[in-house]
Design a protein around this nucleic acid. Structure first.
Lengths: 106, 106
DNA sequence: GATAAGTTTGGCTATTTTACCAATTAACCA
DNA sequence: TGGTTAATTGGTAAAATAGCCAAACTTATC
């Protein structure tokens, strides 16, 4: 595997890794509905605000969300709108797994 | 966030996490071209075979690939064919990031 | 200006992940 | 049978992640 291929894969992996956490998936789903401030997300998630803030920083560093300060609040929104389609395939992995489990019990 | 929502997000995150590594992305791309045995993948990747074997186990546990033993070799293939489409969106995150970097230099 | 609300950052600990090496298992073949 | 190739498993050390608390900072409000 050459250096260029590796760099490309690492760039992709960074983005995917940013999505690879249940809380961050939740955030992405909520931001797909509407932009939210940190406090709103924190209330929905039920973790410490500092934890949520760090998750948001991960998504921001990966280029998945952007932030905008308005007054004392910081609003986050999705930067790339296709992220949700992304999950269609994830669901099909789950679906196939579920079907095979079902077959195993027959 | 209720318990059912959390369980769904955790299931998704497990699959996404399995993809969140450059070597595993490489494996998925190769398996999209054709099924491969562990030795073939190991040669292409250039890591220890035990390392590659463990990456394959991660993908298998996530339900992304299946394996089949033939003689002394174990062949792996993609179980869910849409995985590659999945990357289209990842690329658009990279593309938008690249564009913004370009704008910043103007 | 003091206080409160919203957010981020630093520090710490616990957990998870990764990679390599060594050992083990399984299949092939000379 | 003994040696070789293919693959997995267990162990271990290093690095990365995740969560909470406390502290710092900014903006609004009184």
């Amino acid at each position: 595997m050459n250096i260029k291929t590796r760099a490309k894969l690492e760039a992709r992996a960074r983005i995917i890794k940013a999505l690879a956490h249940p809380t961050r998936l939740f955030i992405v789903e909520e931001l797909d509905k509407k932009e939210c401030c940190v406090r709103e997300l924190t209330e929905m998630i039920g973790a410490d605000m500092s934890t949520v803030s760090k998750h948001l920083a991960v998504l921001k560093n990966a280029g998945i969300v952007t932030d905008e300060k308005r007054g004392s609040q910081v609003f986050y929104k999705l930067r790339v709108l296709c992220i949700l389609k992304f999950f269609g395939c994830v669901e099909s992995v789950l679906r196939v797994s579920a079907e095979e489990q079902l077959e195993a019990t027959r």
